[in-house]
């Protein structure tokens, strides 16, 4: 499933030997990879492999211990606030305000990303139409089912048209139909030129990615397209590839 929109020449994430240590524990160990504009980059690994740590460094939430990385052209040590203008982020924990309505959340996040009133209004309306939430728009987010919340959360994360959107297990605990709808949203964003950086535990979702990396014990073991990986590991599914790699893992949570 190669995305035609991806531009193989422009790198939006350049990551070289990026490392994060917590005392003796090396959460991310000299990880090196590039992500290209418009691509859907799958970031896989067992629990505790270091995915979230790596992602937090790239988002400017966590300072690396060593190594280099540029995100949207900005340095992860010195220009974290510039990075933040250019990215969207959706964490494992649902992170919209439950005690605000859908519209109020859109207004708030649009506002702090510097969208104009007019933009907020227009984008908000089209977002609500796309998600078919017209009748819920004025309800508190807390009252929505999980799947809807996740879709909303993603749509809010790309509201300001970021260069890259980071998704940390966005579909955890969501039913298969909603997951499928969620991926439609991802494709749509990718078609608009937004680079998708996504972690997941669902191997069917891994197949949807343009390229995937698999982390084991803080290191990136493999990085390739899903079809190349299956060929190299002589497997018929991503599941098998993952098992072969993750079995060797020494740590888990």
């Amino acid at each position: 499933m190669q995305n035609n929109k991806s531009d193989a020449t422009e790198k939006v994430i350049v990551c070289k030997d990026l490392t994060k240590r917590f005392g003796d524990f090396i959460a991310a160990n000299e990880i090196t990879f590039d992500v290209y504009k418009g691509e859907i980059f799958g970031f896989l690994g067992a629990n505790g492999a270091g995915k979230t740590t790596a992602m937090r460094m790239l988002c400017g939430l966590s300072v690396p211990s060593s190594g280099h990385a540029l995100v949207a052209g900005y340095d992860v040590y010195k220009q974290t606030e510039d990075i933040k203008k250019k990215i969207g982020y959706m964490s494992q924990k649902f992170s919209l305000y439950e005690d605000l309505t859908i519209l109020e959340n859109i207004e708030f996040f649009g506002g702090i990303y510097g969208l104009t009133r007019k933009e907020i209004k227009e984008k908000g309306r089209s977002l609500i139409e796309k998600l078919d939430l017209q009748s819920e728009a004025k309800k508190l987010v807390a009252s929505l089912p999980l799947g809807w919340k996740q879709k909303l959360s993603f749509s809010v994360a790309v509201l300001h048209d970021p260069k890259i959107v980071f998704l940390d297990e966005p579909t955890g605990g969501v039913d298969p139909i909603t997951r499928r709808q969620f991926w439609d949203l991802i494709y749509e964003a990718s078609a608009r030129g937004i680079t998708i950086f996504v972690t997941t535990h669902y191997m069917d979702e891994a197949e949807y990615c343009d390229r995937i990396s698999i982390m084991v014990d803080g290191k990136i073991e493999v990085l390739d397209t899903p079809s190349n990986l299956k060929r190299n590991f002589k497997s018929t599914s991503m599941d098998e590839v993952f098992y072969q790699l993750a079995r060797s893992a020494k740590r888990s949570d």
């Binding site: 939430l61 933040k84 964490s91 924990k93 992170s95 919209l96 305000y97 996040f109 702090i112």
Partner: peptide, 13 residues
């Protein structure tokens, strides 16, 4: 606790 502060921290606020 709720985790919304992380979402705030990742914005250019």
């Amino acid at each position: 606790e709720v985790g919304t502060i992380e979402q705030i921290n990742v914005t250019p606020i």
